[in-house]
Write a protein that binds this DNA or RNA. Structure first.
Lengths: 250, 250
DNA sequence: AGCGAAATACCAAGAACTGGGGATACTTGA
DNA sequence: TCAAGTATCCCCAGTTCTTGGTATTTCGCT
């Protein structure tokens, strides 16, 4: 197995900061590696609304239409399997990751009728909120280029990283919406401290801490701490690394 | 740039199902690619309860000791940067991902004194807030083999996937830690509902909701709602998409 | 110099949460 | 069959939060 073929792609994707060309690059990978189609997605919700926020693909229009109109995202075994692996997997090996139901098999069969045969999907999770995937697929009857799955793995990883950068889905921490002091109070609150404990830590009075949290809640339009913290986490104002692994008050 | 050198590693790691040899493989990668050290970690839990971490490394004992005794994990800019990228990054480019403080630079300086110079870290997130990373580092004064960072990216990805498989870490992301009812109460609490509101939604008494949340806090060993919610989020018991942007009580 | 935003501090009432107790009924696995 | 766990309900004392105010100082900006 030679990885030479990934040379250009890797170099291109590792540094790229705009999404112009990402689609073309993925298209070229398909051709060079012996795949027929690709699809790159990000979705930020796990609940009912499953519409992806980022979506690049060159699937047959029919399949895309069927997938959307019948809301197959909620039934897609590939999507379920993404939660159970950190690396790419072929669709025919999905049942080693998640149990396959009859409906799952039927869905893949419909896909074949629409021009999508087997595929190799690289899953990727974002901190806490979202997941993405990059898939390379072949036509029905075609076989996956097993010699180059490692290349697909690498290209998929870099493409997802590139898409994450350009889409801003991993927002940089910005204090835009809260003042420093508010953010500080919020941070210690998120670490499980009470207002009085936070006051001691920051060397200010408890009432001031309460006031800062009050203002912060007002800015986000929420009424309780839990929503405030989740909003700030979502906005990247506080990071997961800032709040996990903190000893609680004893 | 040739990726040939990754040939054996990729083949080895893509299929491996046991963790025997993973450490040796990573060691060999270091030698072949021109790195001096590696470290592969998974962080799986938040809060007071100390759950197993996966940790494979060949760092100098002194650095490991310093890192642990001074609890540098909480201050490590590399860890913070992992939240802001889906692909690997060199330590010297961290400030493009997260702002670097004087303390951060000082920490890296201490690392250099303990035998760790520059490094390339591949971050990886698990469903929920758990995360892992695979780092390849060079001695102080040494320079990263930039020609082979793509190989490091691939090997890091495969090694993390391998470690995830063998450690069973992805199986943990389930409802294992909380009962269904507890999780349900927690979910509505995370959406900003009070106990009495949650009681109405679920059709049970407020005291029962309080009790469920009490038991949930007990399991996680935390004393307040915010920590409970973050813990559940970290474990993937509730997803960000499930709780964010949910209409609050009016 | 004046303005607005931020940070600081305080008060008070009521709602909500936390940490102790109990209790009953049902399911599940040893 | 018994023990453990789950789900449901209840009580209570004390603490913490939330919400509504007011007010002073500092700082940057125009």
């Amino acid at each position: 197995m030679s990885l030479d073929i990934a040379e250009g792609f890797a170099e291109e994707l590792l540094g790229v900061e705009t999404d112009s060309g990402l689609k073309e690059t993925l298209k070229r990978v398909c051709g060079r590696l012996g795949f027929d189609h690709f699809a790159l997605t990000f979705e930020t919700r796990t609940g009912a609304d499953t519409s992806p926020e980022v979506l690049l693909h060159d699937y047959p229009a029919e399949w895309a239409k069927v997938y959307i109109t019948f809301d197959l995202a909620g039934k897609d075994p590939v999507r379920r399997a993404c939660d159970k692996s950190l690396t790419g997997f072929t669709w025919e090996s999905i049942d080693r990751l998640v149990p396959m139901t009859r409906g799952d098999r039927q869905m893949l069969a419909v896909g074949r009728e629409c021009g999508i045969g087997d595929g190799y999907t690289v899953p990727r999770h974002l901190p806490g909120l979202a997941r993405g995937s990059c898939t390379f697929a072949v036509r029905p009857g075609g076989s996956l280029p097993t010699r180059w799955l490692a290349v697909a793995e690498l290209v998929g990883a870099l493409a997802l990283g590139c898409a994450a950068r350009t889409s801003g889905i991993l927002r940089l921490a910005s204090n835009a919406r809260l003042s420093d002091r508010q953010r500080e109070c919020l941070l210690w609150t998120a670490r499980g401290k009470t207002a009085s404990e936070t006051a001691i830590i920051l060397g200010i009075s408890e009432e001031t801490v309460v006031q800062h949290l009050k203002m912060a809640r007002e800015r986000y339009g929420v009424h309780c701490r839990q929503s405030l913290i989740l909003s700030a986490l979502f906005d990247g104002l506080i990071g997961f690394g800032d709040v996990i692994r903190w000893p609680e008050r004893s």
